[in-house]
Amino acid sequence: MTVCAIEMTTTAPFTISADGSYAARLAGDGEARYAERWTLAGPEPYAVPLPLAQPEEADSELLPLTDGRVLIHRRVADRHAFALLYPTGAAAGPRTGELQLGGVDAEEGVRVFLLPPAPDGRAAFAVAASDTVTTLWQVAGCAFGPQRVARIPGRCSGGVWLDRTGRLLALDRELEGTTKAVAVDLGGDGRVTPLLQITEDSDDRLLLADPDSGLLLIRSDAPGEPRLGWGVLGSSRPVRFPECLRLGDALPFAVQPGQALMPETCGVALRLPEGDIGLWRPADRHLFRLAAPPVHVEPPVRMDPPPPPSPRPVPLQQAPLAGR
């Protein structure tokens, strides 16, 4: 399943690992916040709290890896620090292990944020965006601390993976007054190429992509107002804006996997402004509405055994760029 971070109105935002086996959120209230990891690959989900001696700040970011560890991004004095958290047993009771990964300098006017989980489940990336230039950092899965992998003119936001190898990344770049989605080739020295340009003056953002079918979910003001639309990666056909997707601030958050070269039949789940869930396929002319299920924020709490030692970092795969 292709997913992005899911934000629920009754609790903190969750981020789900690349393979769907773990999720993480910042639990607690006020000044008593701590990281919490949920295990999803089992008969029922359960939570593992990962508190440390000091509580976490409310603006800390979490990202679960497929080996069960949780990456945390904190603002510490004049640096953005990154670390891995994991549960570890002890005779006196449960403890939280922490592996420091280093950091990058904090600069005025530069926003630093984590990208969605990389497809391999081991690497993690952060974006440092200013008004004139954006730097892409690999902050986990590399040999020696944060490593700069790309430097992109303009201010970037968003972040969508376009393939299963973790080589192609889409970012929404604001440059010279307009915002266009661009593709960054992490296996080609950070080369940047245009991805979306519906009209010359429109703001064209990529919300979600499915590498199996090539389906792209887009938000653009090319029709005269911001609208949801869809297209196909590598296709020469124009982006379409179905009337049934005229839904205001609706957000696509999951795509049906395994629909190889069949974007028209690929199911998409959307979070609707009213709080309900919408189900839609490009081949359909209507949207199915479902009431959102109740949110369970107090799952059973268990302690896992310590995770196995991490394997040596694996370099990004060098895969050829194949268009459809």
Rank of each mutant, 00 (worst) to 15 (best):
residue 155 R to S: 13
residue 217 L to G: 00
residue 197 Q to C: 11
residue 196 L to N: 05
residue 173 R to M: 09
residue 282 P to D: 05
residue 241 F to P: 02
residue 151 R to E: 15
residue 222 A to C: 07
residue 271 R to P: 00
residue 172 D to P: 05
residue 181 A to C: 12
residue 246 R to H: 15
residue 262 M to F: 10
residue 286 H to C: 12
residue 175 L to Q: 13
residue 241 F to D: 04
residue 149 V to T: 06
residue 261 L to W: 08
residue 249 D to Q: 15
residue 160 V to Y: 03
residue 217 L to Y: 02
residue 166 G to L: 05
residue 211 P to Q: 10
residue 283 A to H: 10
residue 281 R to L: 08
residue 186 L to V: 07
residue 148 R to P: 01
residue 188 G to L: 09
residue 200 E to Y: 08
residue 266 C to W: 00
residue 289 R to P: 06
residue 270 L to A: 01
residue 202 S to Y: 05
residue 157 S to G: 14
residue 259 Q to G: 01
residue 287 L to V: 07
residue 216 L to I: 08
residue 240 R to C: 11
residue 157 S to I: 02
residue 169 L to V: 06
residue 276 D to F: 08
residue 268 V to Y: 00
residue 268 V to A: 06
residue 279 L to H: 07
residue 263 P to S: 10
residue 236 S to E: 15
residue 281 R to H: 10
residue 213 S to R: 03
residue 198 I to A: 04
residue 193 T to D: 15
residue 158 G to K: 08
residue 276 D to T: 13
residue 255 V to A: 07
residue 187 G to H: 06
residue 260 A to M: 10
residue 237 R to K: 14
residue 281 R to Q: 12
residue 156 C to S: 09
residue 282 P to N: 02
residue 228 L to R: 02
residue 169 L to S: 03
residue 158 G to C: 10
residue 222 A to G: 05
residue 146 P to R: 00
residue 171 L to D: 03
residue 271 R to K: 14
residue 166 G to H: 03
residue 235 S to H: 11
residue 187 G to D: 02
residue 161 W to M: 04
residue 266 C to Y: 00
residue 160 V to M: 02
residue 208 L to A: 06
residue 241 F to W: 07
residue 265 T to R: 14
residue 166 G to S: 12
residue 215 L to M: 12
residue 258 G to R: 10
residue 167 R to N: 03
residue 145 G to E: 01
residue 196 L to Y: 11
residue 149 V to A: 03
residue 213 S to V: 05
residue 207 L to Q: 08
residue 206 L to E: 05
residue 246 R to S: 15
residue 266 C to I: 05
residue 257 P to S: 08
residue 208 L to C: 08
residue 268 V to T: 08
residue 210 D to A: 13
residue 247 L to P: 06
residue 156 C to I: 04
residue 289 R to W: 07
residue 267 G to F: 06
residue 214 G to L: 04
residue 275 G to T: 02
residue 208 L to K: 03
residue 243 E to S: 14
residue 175 L to D: 09
residue 166 G to C: 12
residue 222 A to P: 04
residue 222 A to F: 02
residue 207 L to G: 00
residue 168 L to V: 11
residue 164 R to A: 15
residue 191 R to Y: 10
residue 252 P to K: 04
residue 207 L to V: 04
residue 259 Q to H: 11
residue 267 G to V: 00
residue 230 W to C: 05
residue 208 L to H: 02
residue 156 C to R: 00
residue 277 I to Q: 00
residue 154 G to H: 00
residue 248 G to A: 13
residue 274 E to V: 09
residue 273 P to Q: 12
residue 270 L to W: 03
residue 273 P to C: 09
residue 271 R to W: 08
residue 249 D to S: 15
residue 271 R to L: 15
residue 283 A to N: 08
residue 197 Q to I: 04
residue 171 L to F: 13
residue 259 Q to V: 04
residue 218 I to L: 12
residue 159 G to P: 01
residue 210 D to G: 14
residue 289 R to G: 10
residue 230 W to Y: 13
residue 170 A to Q: 06
residue 165 T to C: 12
residue 221 D to H: 09
residue 177 G to H: 09
residue 266 C to K: 00
residue 232 V to K: 04
residue 209 A to Y: 06
residue 239 V to S: 09
residue 187 G to W: 04
residue 265 T to G: 12
residue 152 I to H: 04
